[in-house]
Design a protein around this nucleic acid. Structure first.
Lengths: 221, 221
DNA sequence: TAACAAAGTTAGCATATACTAACAAATATA
DNA sequence: TATATTTGTTAGTATATGCTAACTTTGTTA
């Protein structure tokens, strides 16, 4: 059994190696990178790595990158599964908004009960995507695959549908709401402005400009 | 903000001083009593008492009994509230049985989110009693009052209804199921046997004998 | 009441998880 | 390539929570 803190390290490693979305093959996380993501000091990460190595959850050689073992990755996926199922539960059953669920799900994901999570899954009707459009691993840890692209990469004139967001911070999600952007929203790319990589788009009949930062965090298909 | 362990100490104190059911006025818990309830050593309890005193959650003088402050009691009641609402959720929404919910609720009760627990309460329709018949404190920490008596104290010939159980262990609840006893079950007290304080009862037309220990853990009205 | 038993306390130690400060290796840059 | 910067490691320390062993106080009983 892992401690809550160990679980958070595993989840962070999965996230930083971009495996939580079955996307790019980034593979290998640095000590400082992990430390700053978890908001602890690198020395603390080092200490924890000792224990995770003993438990055969990570590979790590001195001064080299950190990677999860298969076992570590499998555990990480069960935590991601729990997190995303709880987020879905909060939004669809308890009237939470998509910008309010993250912190609560961070706590709920550590509850240890196989039965609980399978029952929640059933109660929700076995959803494949969470309220942010992120794929939910099934009970075997398998992620549904789906083609998504950053909105920022589409050519001028494209029409696309928002499938997910890659930033789940309150600030970003709130801003999207003011833009009337949700999962499923249709976006028409009117014009790309090369000067600052921003873009002019039409959303529900309204023209707006999206910055580079915003369009990179919207995943479409 | 309290740690998970601190919350468990507070909850245990509330339980041991019998205030979680608004029953007897037991008042005052011993160090050893608390230690054995929490399955730690008395010295550990002593250590924790220091911190709980600093946080103004308990009163405690050397070699005297421990009592919760009003603030400590209020916190304890919110934990009890969360525990019992989660148990109700598990039974009524996720198809858990009443003997399976305790351990999971022990974990869920520590999730910190006012909004979450109020939404769960609403989702469940503001229940007053949990699956074991225990009263659920409302959002102000007020327990619904209700007359209950130990089955063991009723006179021969009584007819009563099971309102709650005071032991929520798997073994006890499983045994009650084999006896067809649930919350709401009607029991007719045919005969009290003074030799061993057992009793002959009729449940759904069937005659059975209940031991002293069993009849003391069934609360009726 | 003296002596024993039970209950409570203290001191010293262990583990998980964090920190800071100092040091070492790897990488980037002049 | 020499140096500077970034990245990673080690040593020593702190806090929360537990332990054992020894001690003190309180309560019980011969």
């Amino acid at each position: 059994m892992l401690t809550l803190v160990e679980e958070n390290y595993i989840k962070a490693l999965l996230h930083l190696s971009s495996k939580d979305r079955a996307m790019t093959q980034k593979e290998g996380v640095g000590t400082n990178e992990l430390a700053s993501f978890l908001d602890v000091k690198p020395s603390t990460v080092n200490e924890m790595l000792k224990r995770l190595k003993e438990k055969k959850l990570v590979y790590h050689e001195k001064y080299k990158k950190i990677t999860l073992t298969d076992h570590g990755e499998a555990i990480g996926l069960t935590i991601i599964r729990k997190h995303r199922l709880w987020e879905t539960f909060l939004c669809t059953k308890l009237e939470f908004e998509w910008d309010e669920v993250h912190d609560v799900a961070e706590q709920l994901e550590h509850v240890q009960s196989k039965k609980l999570i399978e029952k929640i899954d059933k109660f929700l009707g076995y959803p494949k995507y969470d309220p942010h459009g992120d794929p939910i691993p099934d009970h075997k840890g398998i992620l549904p695959r789906r083609e998504t692209k950053k909105l920022s990469l589409l050519p001028q004139g494209s029409i696309c549908t928002v499938l997910a967001v890659s930033d789940t911070s309150k600030e970003f999600l709130n801003y999207l709401e003011t833009l009337k952007i949700q999962i499923g929203t249709e976006i028409m790319l009117e014009e790309k402005i090369s000067y600052d990589n921003s873009m002019k788009v039409e959303i529900e009949g309204v023209l707006t400009v999206l910055s580079k930062k915003v369009s990179e965090n919207i995943l479409v298909g």
